[in-house]
């Protein structure tokens, strides 16, 4: 009998305690905010969308190799020494490799940050931008290369020309060598 009344009393009493807690919170300061109008500050270290600085990228492909989900696609072209443009990197050193294609598929990216740590020139960086949803998956593939298709075509031709020339020169040299040997 005593147990019964005790049971009823704890039932009632703990409910009152709970109500006191919620009443206290009813008048507490609210913690949520009006999201798109107000935002919490995002620390600069936060790993959100990636951004490539094409000027800095030297096409070493380290990032695409380390990426655990293979979402970075890099294509490179050698810069011919005879290039009339004399391309330069961000710090003025001559560029050795063109990067005609540098695509990141953000639908796959897991924001692990490995690509940014291996990059020797800090060309690829995380930004604090996290609002870039889109309607199609294609829109999530970002093309970072700053080379226009014409330019790529031109550089390809240049390279082809140059390699052909080199080959010819090499062949000539070789034939000279072999002819020497014959002699």
């Amino acid at each position: 009998m005593i147990d019964y009344f005790k049971y009823v009393w704890t039932w009632f009493y703990t409910i009152l305690i709970g109500m006191r807690v919620t009443l206290k919170h009813l008048f507490a300061k609210k913690v949520t905010i009006q999201y798109p109008n107000e935002r919490y500050p995002i620390p600069p270290i936060a790993r959100n969308r990636l951004q490539l600085d094409p000027d800095r990228c030297n096409g070493c492909m380290q990032c695409s190799r380390i990426c655990p989900v293979q979402c970075i696609t890099v294509e490179t072209l050698k810069v011919v020494p005879t290039d009339p443009e004399k391309p330069r990197m961000f710090d003025g050193t001559p560029r050795k490799i063109w990067v005609p294609r540098y695509d990141i598929d953000f639908a796959k990216c897991c924001f692990c940050g490995l690509c940014t740590t291996v990059c020797p020139t800090e060309a690829i960086k995380h930004t604090t931008d996290f609002e870039y949803s889109s309607y199609t998956r294609e829109d999530l593939i970002y093309h970072f290369s700053d080379m226009s298709p014409e330019k790529v075509e031109e550089k390809k031709n240049l390279l082809a020309e140059w390699t052909a020339k080199e080959k010819a020169a090499k062949a000539k040299q070789e034939s000279e060598v072999s002819s020497k040997e014959v002699n």
């Binding site: 995002i42 620390p43 270290i45 936060a46 790993r47 897991c110 924001f111 692990c112 940050g113 490995l114 740590t117 995380h126």
Partner: peptide, 24 residues
């Protein structure tokens, strides 16, 4: 976590032999 590691849930913070970066 976000301030220290850059990630909120998935950190990739402990590396073999150390940490990805120092704390703030």
């Amino acid at each position: 976590f976000e301030k220290a590691t850059g990630g909120r849930l998935l950190f990739n913070y402990f590396w073999v032999g150390g940490l990805a970066n120092d704390v703030y």
